[in-house]
Write a protein that binds this DNA or RNA. Structure first.
Lengths: 337, 337
DNA sequence: CTGAAAGCGCTTACAG
DNA sequence: CTGAAAGCGCTTACAG
């Protein structure tokens, strides 16, 4: 049997109240009593039961982190690992535990959100999700349950919830400008997905840079589609199938860029000589790949840290207004373009 | 204020006991009462407080997963992502939540283990750690706190604790045989670390295969060292510095193999023509790399699933003996050798 | 400085 | 089939 506070109280000839105060480090208790109780606790191997404490304090020091999708690819994507790492380091710094949950589908998302709001286990939740329009958040927002999310939500939600995002517009703009300055003129953009805000923002930056340079947007150079798990090359395949010449290629994600480089070389095109290629996320592989990949570091662990910080602020101050943080990005030029 | 079981009881004109039974789905309660209570619960938006429930049931349906190291590299290594994915899918299947914790250093490991054993939050813990000799487990094993770990522990612990491991000896053996059959004779092994059992086992398989073929082990072809975070190339650098010819190279981890290929080519050696190269873990990049990397799939998500299963068995049956599971590996031949 | 008492929100023998 | 009561292991006003 576990040793409880009243076991200690008996052994130390005090009441549970006193033991509790010693555990809490109260300065009310005399040094003598404190020492005696401490000794008994040590001897008997006492550990406070956090569940009981949580029940009375109404706080668990636990937050939930919800990861979208259970697909291997999503789970293993370095962006999410980075996010998680940031969340966990800040959680640890503030004495919080992190419950990790993955969302298999939209129906489950609703259930999970309600579960975490209702069960009293988590004091708040972080949605590691960029996809939006999530009705699942409606109840959370209305009941002022602390929530923060990664990725800017759609406009209607933008001020109702705390979020962190990269400056994806600037990142897309800068990357495109970089290619333009290197003399590229027919720059393709692949991996646009209309309900993934991140890709839309990057694309908007790309479009703006072209416009600024007086280059008309050629829609045949834009390939939409959410491909992963080894199907990323289909984007480039489609692009090639359109038969339009291009000398630059920007992919919404590094893995799509890797697949592009591979497919281009299979089609007799040399990177960067014939086509400059770049991606987003600066995954570890970007450095190892041959040619090494020009990419944009979005600092996922910083994003994760901020996501926790925003959540923490809401937990501390329930009345506070939702806040937004933009984490800057950094262009990492490498051999691919 | 949250709605509690007694709020529901009042509104439905029954006692808390009855509501509790309805929540639990007890068949004792009349259909009429059940329906009435259910309706009230729905109307008032009742969610059971899991903390209170856990306190009385003495079970939280939460397990802890402890991840070694906080370094980016470890956290982002696909092997650990795979492990985590497996753990989480089985946890979900059994109605468990997973608290993720990372261990920054050995001192913290001890604290974390004690925390999770003592606080009553987690019903058991999974150590996603191969490193061993861990005195931190002594107390867990003695108090019969459910634990499972990934990676075979040292001999003294092998029957005291449940664990899952790959058949690393066989994997090392098979990979070496594969190179031998392709006519390679001077096969180097890099990334051996004496206190990482995984690498020792892979190395033992390598040595055994050589011996079986009557090829003496040349110690100058074995490079020890735990390198990560971009320093992996130092292993190959050391190997080259020794000035001994080799036509095969086996790295304890794929990332070390990538770094090797890169460094070899910088030194004018072509893979696989001059040197066949292979690694372990079959990370997603292995397929994308140029040349694609021969590797060993260790099925990390299966390992994670088993690790949860073993833990679950102990939670269900505290008296049960520790169990061991070996997950088979698969050699994935690719262009590098 | 310390104690007695109430209470956090549940569950579950025990009665009827 | 339902209720009254005790209890899970803590914390914290209230008293002294």
């Amino acid at each position: 049997m576990r040793v409880t506070i009243s076991d200690i109280a008996k052994a130390a000839n005090v009441t549970p109240s006193t033991v509790s105060r010693v555990v809490a480090g109260s300065s009310l208790i005399s040094v003598k009593t404190t020492n005696k109780v401490r000794r008994v606790m040590r001897e008997m191997g006492y550990h406070p039961n956090m569940i009981a404490r949580s029940l009375v304090r109404r706080s668990t020091n636990i937050v939930a982190a919800l990861l979208p999708g259970s697909s291997e690819q999503v789970f293993q994507h370095p962006f999410f690992s980075g996010l998680l790492q940031g969340v966990m380091s800040q959680a640890k710094a503030h004495g919080y535990e992190v419950i990790l949950a993955n969302i298999d589908n939209e129906a489950e998302e609703q259930l999970l959100v309600e579960h975490f709001m209702g069960s009293g286990v988590a004091e708040g939740m972080i949605l590691l999700v960029s996809r939006v329009g999530q009705t699942s958040l409606e109840s959370a927002v209305q009941s002022a349950f602390p929530v923060s999310m990664v990725g800017r939500p759609i406009d209607a939600w933008v001020d109702r919830i705390s979020w962190v995002d990269s400056d994806n517009f600037a990142a897309g703009y800068n990357l495109t400008r970089y290619f333009l300055q290197k003399g590229r003129r027919q720059i393709a953009f692949i991996g646009l997905v209309s309900d993934i805000v991140v890709t839309m923002d990057r694309f908007a930056g790309y479009r703006h840079a072209l416009k600024e340079s007086g280059i008309p947007l050629d829609e045949r150079l834009v390939v939409e589609g959410r491909f992963m798990d080894g199907d990323e090359h289909l984007l480039t395949k489609e692009l090639l199938a359109r038969g339009v010449r291009f000398d630059g290629l920007i992919a919404a994600d590094d893995y799509q860029a890797f697949a592009a480089i591979k497919l281009l070389s299979q089609n007799g095109l040399t990177v960067p000589r014939d086509v400059a290629v770049a991606g987003f996320n600066n995954v570890p592989l970007a450095e190892y790949f041959s040619p090494s990949l020009t990419s944009v570091d979005v600092r996922p662990s910083s994003i994760g840290e901020k996501a926790f910080d925003l959540l923490y602020q809401q937990i501390e101050n329930k009345a506070g207004k939702p806040l937004h943080v933009i984490v800057p990005t950094a262009l990492i030029p490498r051999a691919s373009g």
